[in-house]
Design a binder for these strands. Sequence first.
RNA 1: CGGGGCGUAGCGCAGCCUGGUUAGCGCGCCUGCUUUGGGAGCAGGAGGCCGCGGGUUCGAAUCCCGCCGCCCCGACCA
Length: 503
Amino acid sequence: MPGPGRTRPAGLIPHLYSQAMAVDEKETGFVKDIRKQSADFPGWYNDVVRKAQLADYSPVRGCMVIRPYGYAIWENIRDPLDALIKQTGHENWYFPALIPLSFLMKEAEHVEGFQPEFAMVTRGGGKDLEEPLVLRPTSETMIASVLRDYIQSYRDLPVLTNQWNNVFRWELRTRLFLRTLEFLWQEGHTFHETAAEAEEEVARMLDVYRQIAEDWCAVPVLAGRKSDTEKFAGAQYSTSIEGMMIDGKALQMGTSHYFGENFTRAYDLTFTGRNNERQYPHSTSWGMTTRMVGAVVMAHGDDSGMQLPPRIAPVQVIIVPIFRSDTERTQIENALVGVKEELKDIRVKVDWREERPGFKFNEWELKGVPIRLEIGPRDLAKGEATMVRRLDRSKRTVPLQELSLAIPAMLEEVQLALFKRARDFREQHTVRLDSLEALVKFFESSIGFVITPWCGREEDERTVKDRTTATTRVILSGSAGPDTPCAVCGRPATVEVSWGKSY
RNA sequence: CGGGGCGUAGCGCAGCCUGGUUAGCGCGCCUGCUUUGGGAGCAGGAGGCCGCGGGUUCGAAUCCCGCCGCCCCGACCA
């Protein structure tokens, strides 16, 4: 399914970098503000998120402050996702953040899954409330309770809702963007006449998430159904997209659930069908969160900091002016008028701060800006700018009049290169194995994903988790080939499943 | 909740063991000058309820008791 971001200016200056200048080795390894990625990945991640000013700790334990640069990245993910959600026929709603406890208690499995994570309001107006209100951990119960009144007939279906909001889950261990007590997301909730329609919806929205992850965030994903132990509380089944981070761990980046009649029965939401009989709609829900920002950091970063895919980079081109005198400064200012006109469709920023160029180079690299343009007296004398890309620090000069072609082409090239690099990394760290011993041995000495035939039994997941800490990620295929034994227990395998250590 | 660590300037820390002038260092911040093609240099300056409460003492950041908070590691999760 070609997403809106799939168009590429194919033939535009194809091999721009074949003549790239060699990278001076002395120019690497400058970052002293952040821990080494290879030595301490969690420490590196934390340093990058904070030093790049994406987010910071807040006065409240487990809650974060998203700073403008981090929020801008989220907006650049959110906006295309919102567009795709609307293109697929959904409408945005807003439902209350406070949910009566009794609503949440109605669906047994759902309650069991979420109750430990409830944050509850028990007082208001100076009095104890008659019924506690739960800060929404998700809105299935509220939405089912409300739509009960709006859905009467099969003619009212499908109802395709979405809402952008914040949710609360009282997590024990938190990490910036990856797991916080409060986070931002969208939650889609849909109601359908038939199971088939609902299941199509689940698959459709999972593919929307795949597009956002792959085409916009340049993070390749495995997409598929979750095992029963890993599914959402209350779902008949869940699907997810899973990306591999640079430490080889899996990160779940979006989920899409099929509920069947579970929720509509629990909330007595019915419609009169074509046969004039009362029926329960089949419902779905699906969500993608601010965790995506963390995924981008961990999928593309290096020892110098972030590397942002151009499509979601708040600043796509950073211009660093270099000058010694007021005269030179004025000359550059004048030249930049034309440059900005050439790049009027690009997110460009000029860094005029009173810092030395070298400082700015390092800082914008930490912030992951895809392209840097250096413009100084030497460049101006030749009517050029020096273009350096974050991807590999390769450097070349570009005539100022050619920037309007060269920059978009380079942005597109970088977008694809990041995706390809991440995909190659994942493929290099994915193996197919067919025995428990091989699986255990793999996770003792390696990182990454393992794909095995599997019979689907929960006991096997427990066995593998006990011995490796790895869990099933997604089921990749509904069949494992005839006469294939399960890698864990030897019983006949029914599926192919991916295993990985996860966040 | 179990185990470990830490609360001293915006951030990172030293000082505490062995109580005693005005609580110190690095980074950052402010001012000025010189600098500017890969994290500048010099000079000057501002900034502190030493987590909170109690005790011991002539005297507490330092010793004792209690409390609070945060971070890291083990059972849950987008």
